[in-house]
Computed example of a mutant assay.
Amino acid sequence: MNFSGRTYLIDVSIDKQGWDISKESKVISGYTCYKATKKISLNGKNFIPIEAWFTPSLPFSVGPTRYGKLPGLILYLNQEGIVFYAKTIVINPKEIAFKVPKSGKEITQENFNRMIDSAVNNLKTKN
């Protein structure tokens, strides 16, 4: 992950449990999506709500940042006001090669989240 001009190697342990999947649905970028929610702790004390909308039509159990483990691609995710969404989806049948960084500062997901939260709070206080 690149952030503020530095590369970070984040030790991510994905929580495979905890999603509550509802029957509530809506269309995002032409795909029928279903709502899933969970609460996570970034600091071991306070829990924040996560709302994800995923589509089983694209059977990839991935999403933005470290979220996934749902029965379809996450097209919308809201983490305490920070929103990720798919504006356009292009299906590319070609194999894509990408490089995994081999060097960078090793950091835990929890510490990386704290760093991001601090940067967001700094931006909020400047506005």
Score class of each variant (00 low, 15 high):
Met1Gln: 08
Met1Cys: 07
Asn2Gln: 10
Phe3Gly: 09
Phe3Ser: 09
Arg6Gln: 13
Thr7Met: 14
Tyr8Phe: 14
Tyr8Trp: 08
Leu9Ile: 14
Ile10Val: 15
Ile10Pro: 06
Ile14Gly: 06
Ile14Met: 10
Asp15Ile: 15
Asp15Met: 07
Lys16Ile: 09
Gly18Pro: 02
Gly18Thr: 02
Trp19Arg: 00
Asp20Thr: 13
Ile21Phe: 08
Ser22Arg: 08
Ile28Asp: 01
Ser29Tyr: 07
Gly30Arg: 03
Lys38Arg: 14
Lys38Pro: 02
Ile40Trp: 00
Ser41Val: 06
Leu42His: 11
Asn43Leu: 07
Asn43Ser: 06
Lys45Arg: 10
Asn46Ser: 14
Asn46Cys: 00
Phe47Cys: 03
Ile48Asn: 04
Ile48Arg: 02
Ile48Trp: 00
Ile50Val: 03
Glu51Asp: 03
Ala52Leu: 04
Trp53Met: 03
Phe54Trp: 10
Phe54Met: 05
Pro56Trp: 10
Ser57Trp: 05
Leu58Pro: 01
Pro59Gly: 07
Phe60Tyr: 11
Phe60Ser: 12
Ser61Gln: 15
Tyr67Asp: 06
Lys69Asp: 10
Lys69Thr: 09
Leu70Asn: 10
Pro71Asn: 12
Gly72Val: 11
Gly72Asp: 01
Leu73Asn: 08
Leu75Asp: 04
Leu77Asn: 03
Asn78Glu: 03
Ile82Arg: 05
Phe84His: 07
Tyr85Gln: 09
Thr88Gln: 08
Thr88Cys: 03
Ile89Phe: 06
Val90Tyr: 09
Ile91Thr: 10
Ile96Gln: 14
Ala97Pro: 03
Pro101Ala: 14
Lys102Thr: 10
Lys102Asp: 12
Ser103Val: 14
Ser103Gly: 12
Gly104Ser: 13
Glu106Pro: 12
Asn111Phe: 15
Phe112Gln: 09
Asn113Leu: 14
Arg114Leu: 15
Ile116Ser: 06
Ile116Gln: 01
Asp117Arg: 12
Val120His: 06
Asn121Ser: 13
Asn122Ala: 14
Leu123Ala: 13
Leu123Met: 09
Leu123Ser: 13
Lys124Met: 12
Lys126His: 07
Asn127His: 05
Asn127Met: 10
